[in-house]
Structure formats: structure tokens, C-alpha cells
Computed example of a mutant assay.
Amino acid sequence: MRGANPFVEWIVKVAQPCNLACDHCYVYELLDRTWRHKPAVMANGTADQLARRIAEHARRHALSRVRVTLHGGEPLMAGRSRIEHLLKVLREELRGTAVCDISVQSNVTLLNPSWMDLFHRHGVSVGVSLDGGREANDRHRRAKNGRSSYDSVQRGLELLRRPENKALFAGLLCTVDLANPPLDVFEDLLAHEPPAINFLLPHATWEHPPPGHDPNRTPYANWLLEVFERWYTAPRQETRIRLFEDLMDLALGGHVRSESTGLADTDFLVVESDGTIELADSLKATRDGGPATGLDIFAQDFDSVARHPVVADARRGGLAALADVCRGCEVVRLCGGGLRAHRFSPLTGFANPSVYCADLRVLTTHIRDRVVADATALLGSAS
């Protein structure tokens, strides 16, 4: 894979269906409809081939560690036996080659002690999708019959927070909704004692802007900055917030490999339940088949995938991948031009600033100035 970084993470769609009907879901509620034609769950033979391909890639690039995230839909709908088969074959194929960090991103409404026993045996951490307290969460994350999902999520989280299970709690993923007061959301999330929280901007494009989009008032930056100040000024660290930590690292000269910040190449792929290979799920916001590559794990190894023009173009970082207006921006090294999907317009493709450009400028400038000033003051006091 000449001139390119290897892949180190695979997001695996072990189940296509979901037992909830979240109206902001980026899998089912955006423009992409290709999920309708994919098998409901990943077959064991597909899992076997995936594990072989990952191990082959790890050996070829001398990778000492790789990551696999079980995803969906709701991944627990694949069933324990099918998930265990995948976990076993990943361990077997990678034994002696690379450590495999495995996680599952779930709504935890189906989580029970049997699942936790399986996850303990295979060292699987659990990330939970949750948008805040009952009112905030139920604004979008409801069951298919329209009823609240909150009590079911609470039960799953209580199980995950038990002393014997807490080490497997990876954290919370929260989609920002301007209708939910930011500090209320943050306090409600903190009540679950998560080791980490990640905030996700609603996936949107210039054709379909996010709710409340207003470049003059930057509501998404304002929402996030209320949380940032509460988190940053706390007398002790209550949790990690990846978005803020990544921006702080970049502001202080660090190097961050992230899809949504910085200028590094992306290093992950999505593998669907039928073995087809796709780009980031966020591209489902752009058009039907937006993440599709036309490639699959049976016909191509991951080095061939990396060389494919569609994949190479989509994962390319650096200033050359951005619109002209972004290249001279003072905060481009921090925001990286924003998520690729958020730059999309039907007329000009991805050659645009992010639909969140104004918000990202305010957010990154504030965090940069705050952190650099504090670091300078600390260094001055120490000299």
C-alpha cells in the first residue's frame, strides 16, 4: 500500500435491523437506502473471511494492535452465538500477530447478564448511545411503537455500571440537539459515571442543513462551548470528552488521527453484513449509496481496497483534500475542514467548507485560545 497508512479499525455491521426507531438515525433516516438489500445479520462465513482479511492486513503492515467495533442497526440483534463466533475467529486469526481491541456500540436495551458474561470472556467494551435524560433522549430515541426507550436504556446502563462490569463501560455517544439545554444534558450523562463522552453533530449537508442552522449565531458552537466550559473548569476531571481533548491536543501542537478533527488521513473502513466495504456511515447523509465503494472482502484484500480511487480519495487528509476557502483558514489545522460528509453539496460535491463551518470556527478558536493562554500561564509560573 505504497504511500498510504494502513487501516487499523474496522466498523462491522453485524446486524442491519434495530429495535428502536430513532428519527435522527444516520443509518435509516438519511438519504441512503442500500441497507434494505443487505442480509439482516452477518453470516458466519462472512465473519470468517473478514477475520482472515484483517489478520492478513495486520501481518502485511506489522500492526501490533487493531480495533474492531461491532455496529448495526443494533448489533445485539445478531444474537449471542453469532457474535461469539465472530469474536472467536478474530482472536484465532490474529493470535501471534496483533492485539485486537473489540467494542460494541449499542443502545443497551437488550443488554443482560448473559451478554455481559460473553463480553467479559472476550474483553469486549460497550459504548452506549444516549442523548441525555428522559426528555432529551425520548425526543428522538423511541421504540418502534413510539414509546419511551429510556427505562430500557437505564436498565442496561445500571447493569454496565455494576462494579464487576464497569471496566467494560467504554462511554456514551450523544447527538447534539439544540432543543436540549446543554448543561442539563451534560449533567444527566455524567450521572451514569461514563469514562468518556463523545458529542456528535447531526449529520447534515449543504442540501439538507442541520436543524437550527445559522452561520451568524453559531448555535452548535454555543451549545458545545457551554459544555466545554463546564467540563474544562471542573475542579477534577469527571469524564473524558474526545472532541474537546482532540482540539486541545491539536492546539498545543499534537497530532490527532480523527475523522472529524485535524488533517490526518482516516484509518478505518466499514464492513457491511454481506461483506461489502463502505466508507464512513456519515456519507449516508449525502445520497443513496453515498458510502458505497463497489468492493467486498471476498474479492479484494484491504491493500487493494486502499488503492481503489474512491477509497483513496475519501480517506485522504491534508490541505489538498479541502476547498480553496479552507486552505488559508487560521483554524484549518484544528477543524480539518470538518467531517467530509458535512461538506457535501449536489452541485460541487465535497469541494466546500463544512455546513458547520461558522460553528467550527467559533468552537476551535475559543478552545485554542483558552488552552494556549492557560498553558502559557502555567509555563510562565514554572520558570
Rank of each mutant, 00 (worst) to 15 (best):
A4T: 07
F7A: 09
K13S: 05
K13A: 03
V14M: 08
A15N: 00
P17Y: 11
A21Q: 09
H37A: 04
V41R: 15
M42N: 07
A43T: 00
N44K: 15
T46K: 10
T46C: 04
R59G: 15
R65L: 14
V66N: 06
G73L: 08
E74M: 06
P75T: 03
G79R: 15
G79W: 14
R82T: 12
E84W: 08
E84R: 12
L90H: 01
E92L: 14
G96N: 08
V104H: 10
V104D: 07
V104P: 04
N107H: 06
V108H: 05
L111C: 04
N112P: 10
N112C: 11
P113M: 13
W115R: 00
M116C: 03
V128Y: 04
G132M: 06
E135Y: 08
D138R: 01
R139N: 03
R142M: 14
R142V: 15
A143Y: 14
G146E: 05
R147D: 15
R147T: 14
S152V: 02
V153C: 15
L157D: 10
L159Y: 11
R161W: 02
R161P: 09
E164L: 05
N165E: 12
N165K: 02
K166T: 12
P181A: 07
L183Y: 10
F186H: 15
L189V: 10
L190K: 13
P195T: 13
I197V: 07
L200C: 05
L200W: 01
P202D: 01
P202C: 03
T205M: 14
H208I: 12
P209A: 04
P219C: 09
Y220V: 13
A221H: 00
W223H: 06
W223I: 10
L224I: 03
L224T: 07
V227N: 04
R236N: 05
R242H: 06
L243V: 09
L243Y: 10
F244H: 08
G253F: 00
H255E: 08
S258R: 06
E259S: 11
T261P: 03
L263P: 09
D265Q: 00
T266N: 03
D267E: 11
L269E: 04
V270N: 12
V270G: 11
D274E: 14
G275S: 07
I277C: 08
S282T: 08
L283Y: 07
K284F: 02
G289N: 01
G290C: 03
A292H: 13
D296R: 15
D296W: 15
D303T: 10
D303E: 12
P309R: 02
V311Y: 04
A312P: 00
D313N: 00
A314R: 02
A321V: 07
L322A: 02
D324H: 11
V325G: 10
V325D: 07
G328P: 14
R333A: 10
G336A: 07
H342Q: 07
F344L: 03
S345C: 01
T348K: 03
N352M: 05
P353D: 05
S354C: 13
S354G: 14
A358T: 00
L360R: 14
R361C: 00
T364V: 11
H366A: 14
D369T: 09
V372I: 10
D374T: 12
A377G: 09
A377S: 13
G380Y: 02
A382H: 01
A382M: 08
